[in-house]
Simulated scan of single mutants.
Amino acid sequence: MSTKTVPGNYFEDFSVGQEIRHATPRTVTEGDVALYTALYGSRFAATSAATFAEAIGFAAPPVDSLLAFHLVFGKSVPDISLNAVANLGYAGGRFGAPLVVGDTVLTTSTVIGLKENSNGRTGVVYVNSVGVNQRGEMVVDYVRWVMVHKKDPASPAPETVVPELPGAVAAEDLVVPFALTGRDYDTVLAGSPFLWDDYEVGEQIDHVDGMTIEESEHMLATRLYQNTAKVHFNQHAQAAAKIGRRLIYGGHIISLARALSFNGLANGQMIAAINAGAHANPTFAGDTIYAWSEVLERLELPGRTDVGVLRLRRVETQDAPRAEFPGKDGDGTYLPQVVLDLDYTVLMPRRG
Rank of each mutant, 00 (worst) to 15 (best):
G102S: 06
T51A: 15
A60R: 15
K150H: 03
D206S: 03
F262I: 05
K150G: 01
D186E: 04
F14E: 01
F69I: 01
E297S: 12
V127N: 09
A240C: 07
E215K: 13
A320H: 07
G244T: 06
E19W: 04
Y10G: 00
V175G: 03
T228E: 08
Y249M: 10
Y344P: 03
D329M: 10
K4E: 14
L180P: 00
S76Y: 09
R304P: 00
R311N: 12
P321G: 06
A34F: 11
G131R: 00
S81R: 09
L335M: 11
E217H: 15
T24Y: 14
A97R: 15
R258L: 02
E203R: 13
A278V: 15
G308L: 03
L224K: 01
S109C: 04
L180W: 06
S15F: 14
A266S: 06
R26E: 08
I271V: 14
G136D: 09
V132I: 11
G102L: 10
S261V: 00
L180V: 05
E300M: 07
L335T: 06
F73G: 08
V201E: 15
I254V: 13
G89R: 05
S192A: 13
V111H: 01
L174Y: 01
M1R: 10
K242N: 13
V6S: 13
A50I: 11
S2E: 11
D197H: 13
I112D: 00
G17F: 08
G303T: 07
T5S: 11
R304Q: 01
F178S: 05
E316N: 12
L340G: 10
M348S: 07
V124S: 05
R351L: 11
G332T: 00
V72L: 05
S261I: 03
K230Y: 13
D13Q: 05
P336N: 13
F262V: 01
L256K: 05
M138R: 15
T3K: 11
E203S: 11
A291S: 15
